[in-house]
Design a binder for these strands. Structure first.
Ligand SMILES: [Mn+2]
Ligand SMILES: [Mn+2]
Ligand SMILES: [Zn+2]
Ligand SMILES: [Zn+2]
Lengths: 135, 135
DNA sequence: CTCTCAATAGTAATGATTACTGTTACTATT
DNA sequence: AATAGTAACAGTAATCATTACTATTGAGAG
């Protein structure tokens, strides 16, 4: 439960940040690895993981813990909502005007202190809409 | 993306169901394995995984895909909300009266068809409230 | 420019889950 | 009751994402 932070802006971090800024696709660590390797062929996958973790800890990017197997990352650090495609796992941005007035910060009779919530919309991405395979 | 279902109520499934009904703790597959082994020492962990998957597919139990590393299981198939402790990962039931009127089933300009949402409250469990270690 | 230690590449290890494989045991039918 | 068909089983190997380790490099403060 530690929070690594960015102390030095290395080549690796600068390029990861740059590449993440170019897309709106919320890539996985592995996908970021592929994008960055084009410009820095010797980068290690471990570095990508470590840097993504550190930069999200510092608020430069977002780590999306969508309820899939893999974590996804977002170059846009501003808070906003996301939809996850139930068929292929892709994640998209969602600008919903529906205000979420969810009563967080309350005591539950069960004894839990509720301080927040995590919300994720689900649905179908453009591609899977027209070809709805087994979901 | 297949959905295995229960066609035969075996010893293994009956006992898993029984043990899951005794607790309100939302155990992981591994914890269920421990509970069931007391009554059925020769059961295999793979069987526990398969049966939990099959019985949640059939609606006999719930699979909670809380955004932690491990899946958790709930003997209560009725829909209700959950809190996850940010310190230890434990999951509790939450009876919140706050009605969630979230506009699902709409089209996003991004092209996604939004059909639902997944919601999870976060906070601190009774134990971690009084001893707030590094979160 | 020099020094320090944060960060790196490369690789091994971990941990949860899933797949495989030969065997067992429900269930329906002769 | 014996037979057949096949769902489910135990045991084990494999997968996959992620994290840890270790010797080496380089960012950036002074
Ligand atoms: Mn986003
Ligand atoms: Mn529950
Ligand atoms: Zn899709
Ligand atoms: Zn706790």
């Amino acid at each position: 439960m530690s929070r690594p932070e960015v102390k030095r802006m290395t080549q690796q971090r600068r390029i990861i940040l740059e590449e993440l800024g170019k897309v709106t696709s919320h890539p996985t660590a592995d996908e970021v690895y592929g994008m960055v390797r084009v410009h820095l062929p010797s980068i290690s996958l471990g570095t990508v993981y470590r840097d993504l973790e550190a930069m999200s800890g510092s608020g430069l990017i977002q780590k999306l813990e969508t309820c899939g197997r893999q974590k996804r990352f977002d170059g846009n650090p501003a808070p906003h909502h996301h939809v996850r495609c139930l068929a292929c796992g892709r994640v998209g941005d969602l600008q919903t005007d529906t205000e979420l007035y969810i009563k967080a910060d309350f005591d539950d009779p069960g004894g839990y202190k509720v301080t927040g919530y995590r919300m994720e919309y689900t649905g179908l991405c453009p591609d899977c809409r027209r070809d709805p395979l087994a979901i």
